[in-house]
Nucleic acid binder design. Structure first.
Lengths: 352, 352
DNA sequence: CTGAAAGCGCTTACAG
DNA sequence: CTGAAAGCGCTTACAG
C-alpha cells in the first residue's frame, strides 16, 4: 500500500543542477536558449535519474492542441467496409481527447481520384500536426505524402501500403500472405477437377493491392504442386447486375469451377449470384466482416471470410500518431494485422 | 487549431452553486458531510453541465495508490500457456501505473489446489482493492470470491468462468462454441470411416471447462446429422510417455480414427506421438499458440489451433478493474473472446 | 541565457 | 456542514 517509487521530477533535477525548473523544461524539450554547459549538466542528471516525464502533468499544464487529419474513403452504398476503421478511429479519439488531441476527418470517393486530391489539398492547407490516410490511389497518395514530408508532418498508412515512403508506419495486412491463406481455404472442397476462379470486383482491377493478393493466392498452388487451374475474372462494374452478367459468362466458359476467391469485400454480390443460380456446389471465399457477408456466411453460401481487423487498423493508426506527437515514443514502421479466418461457427465472437 | 470545447470543471460548478470546490468534490465522490440541499443543487448543475471529471488532474492530485492482486497459475515446464495472460497483464500494468495503480501477482500450481488456497489467503490478508483470477479450481475459487465479496473487493475471472458469482466480469472463451468450431475443423479431412477422438489430457478430465468444450464438439455432429462416431480418451498423466502409452492403446482399439481433437494446449504431445508413430493420416486439432504447437503446425502435424487471445484476456481483465476502481465507469459482465483459427499459413501474424 | 510565478483541474488535510 | 489554501508535476508567458 505504500508508495515505493522515489519519484524524481523536474524539481529534483533543477535542484541538483542548481538551475530553475524552467531551464530544465527547456532542455527536456530541446528548446533553444540554454548554454551548452548547463544543457549538458542537466542532461547528465536526467540520464542518471532515468527521468520519465509525467505525461498527465505535462498535458494538463500545456493547453496546446494537437490536431490530426484523417483521409479515408467515404462509406458508400456499395460497401460499408470503411465504417470499421472509422469506428476504431473514433474510439482512439475518445481516449486521447483528454490529452488535447483533436481529430478532423476528410472523406474521399473511392471512384474519384479527383476527390482524393481535393481533400488532400484541404489537409495541406489546414496545418495539421499529423495525418492518417488510406492510400487507395497510389500515385496521388505519393504526391500528397511528399508534400507532408516537406512540411515535416508525420503520416501513417492504413489498409494498404505505399512502399518506400517516409511514412511513420504502415498498419494493415500482409497482402501476399493473405492471398496465400485464401488459397488454402479454397482447397477444402476441391474435388477432381481442381479449377478455381479469382474474382476481382473493382474499378481498379490491377491495383497494386489486388496483384499482391493474387500473387499470394497463386503461390500457394505452386508451392504445393497442385494441378489446380486458376482462372481470373475481372469485373469492373461493381453493381450487382454487372457482377451477375460477368459471372454467368465466366461460369459458362468454365463449367467445372469448384471454388471462387473474391479479392475484396464485395464477395456478397457473388454469393447473391450463386444463390440465385443455385450453384451451392461452388465454395466461396472472400473478405471482410460486413453484415451482408455474414448473412451469406450463415446461409452457407460463403465458406470463409478473411478479415484484417479494420477497426483495429483505424485505432492503431491514430494511436501511432499520438505516440509520436504526444508521447514522443518510437513507433514500429510496419505493423501487419492478423489474417483472421471467419466461419459460420466462430463469427459471433469476432472482434474487428 | 482553436480550443472549441468550453470546458466546465469543479470551479465553474462551485461558482454556480455558490459553494467552494471542496464541497463540489465531496458531492462528486459521494462523501458524507454535505447537506441534502447543497448536494441536490450541485448534482443538478453537474447534470446540466454534463460534467466530465478530468482523470489526469484527479490522478495527479490524488496520491492514493490502488493495489490489485493477480491470482493465476505458475508457468510450468509442461506448458507455458500462462505466459501470454501474464504478458497482457504486464502491458496493462505499464499503461495504468501512471494513474497510481500497483499490481502484485500471486502464482499457484495447477497440480495443487492447496497452493491455490494458500495464495488466496495471502491476497485476503493483503487488503487489495481488486482481484483478477483464473478460477482453475472451481470450488476453491467459489470460497475465495465469497470472501472477496464480503470484503467488497471486486474480482474478475479470466480463462474460465464460475457461473453465478458476484464477479465484476468474466473475460474468456465461450467454451461450448469453441468446441463446436473444433468439431467443424475436425471434419475437413474426414473420409468414409468418420471416426474422431476427443482427447483430454489433464489431471482433472471432468472439470467443467472440458465438459463444456466436449459438449460443443458433440453438438456439431448432431446438428449436422453426421454419422461420425466420437470416442473419448482421457489421459490423466500429462507427461509425454503416459500420453504415448494411452494413445497407442486407444488407436489400437480404434484403428480407423481419422481426426483427433485435443481439448487443451497439450496437443503438442499428441503431435509428437503421431510424428513418431508416423500417423500423418490422422488430422489433429487443438488449442493455443505455444511455441511447440506452432512448430508442429508448421510441420503439418497439427492442422488447426484454436486460440482465445490469452494475452488480451490478461490485459482486459486488469483494465476492467482499472475501469471500475479508477474511472468508475460500468463494466460489461461477460466478454467472450474471439475463437481464432490458426493455420500454418496465417500463424505468423497472429496476435495473442 | 535564466528564473519567478501563475496556472492546468483536481484532491487533501486542516480549520472552523 | 463548509471553505481557504497548498499541492500534484508539469508548461507558459513575462521579465530581466
Amino acid at each position: 500500500m505504500e508508495k515505493e517509487n522515489t519519484y524524481y521530477g523536474v524539481k529534483e533535477i533543477a535542484r541538483r543542477a542548481n538551475v530553475s525548473i524552467a531551464t530544465v523544461d527547456r532542455v527536456i524539450h530541446n528548446r533553444s536558449g540554454v548554454s551548452e554547459k548547463t544543457k549538458k549538466k542537466i542532461n547528465d542528471i536526467i540520464k542518471e535519474l532515468d527521468y520519465q516525464p509525467n505525461i498527465l502533468a505535462s498535458r494538463l499544464a500545456s493547453r496546446k492542441i494537437i490536431s490530426l487529419a484523417i483521409l479515408i474513403p467515404r462509406v458508400s452504398e456499395e460497401t460499408d467496409f470503411w465504417e470499421a476503421p472509422m469506428k476504431g478511429i473514433t474510439r482512439a479519439e475518445a481516449e486521447i481527447r483528454k490529452y488535447g488531441v483533436q481529430v478532423t476527418t476528410f472523406y474521399f470517393d473511392l471512384n474519384s481520384q479527383e476527390s482524393f486530391n481535393e481533400q488532400a489539398a484541404l489537409i495541406l492547407e489546414g496545418h495539421f500536426h499529423g495525418v492518417l490516410l488510406a492510400p487507395s490511389f497510389i500515385e496521388a497518395s505519393r504526391k500528397f505524402v511528399h508534400a507532408c514530408h516537406k512540411l515535416k508532418i508525420p503520416f501513417v498508412f492504413i489498409d494498404s501500403d505505399v512502399p518506400d515512403e517516409h511514412n511513420l508506419c504502415y498498419i494493415g495486412p500482409h497482402l501476399f500472405q493473405s492471398g496465400y491463406v485464401g488459397a488454402k481455404l479454397s482447397t477444402y472442397r476441391l474435388k477432381e477437377k481442381h479449377k478455381v476462379a479469382v474474382v476481382n470486383i473493382s474499378k481498379e482491377t490491377d491495383s497494386y493491392n489486388y496483384l499482391q493478393i493474387e500473387e499470394g493466392f497463386r503461390s500457394y498452388f505452386k508451392d504445393h504442386d497442385l494441378p489446380t487451374e486458376i482462372i481470373r475474372v475481372d469485373i469492373k462494374d461493381t453493381d450487382s447486375l454487372s457482377v451477375a452478367r460477368d459471372l454467368t459468362r465466366a461460369l459458362h466458359e468454365h463449367e467445372d469451377v469448384e471454388a471462387i476467391f473474391v479479392t475484396n469485400s464485395r464477395v456478397f454480390s457473388v454469393a447473391a449470384f450463386l444463390k440465385k443460380s443455385k450453384r451451392t456446389d461452388i465454395s466461396l471465399i472472400g473478405y471482410d466482416y460486413l453484415k451482408e457477408n455474414i448473412s451469406f456466411l450463415n446461409q452457407g453460401l460463403i465458406d470463409f471470410l478473411i478479415c484484417h481487423k479494420p477497426e483495429e487498423q483505424g485505432y492503431r493508426g491514430l494511436m501511432a500518431l499520438y505516440q509520436r506527437l504526444v508521447l514522443g515514443t518510437p513507433v514500429e514502421k510496419t505493423h501487419f494485422m492478423p489474417i483472421d479466418i471467419i466461419t459460420k461457427e466462430n463469427q459471433a465472437f469476432y472482434q474487428n
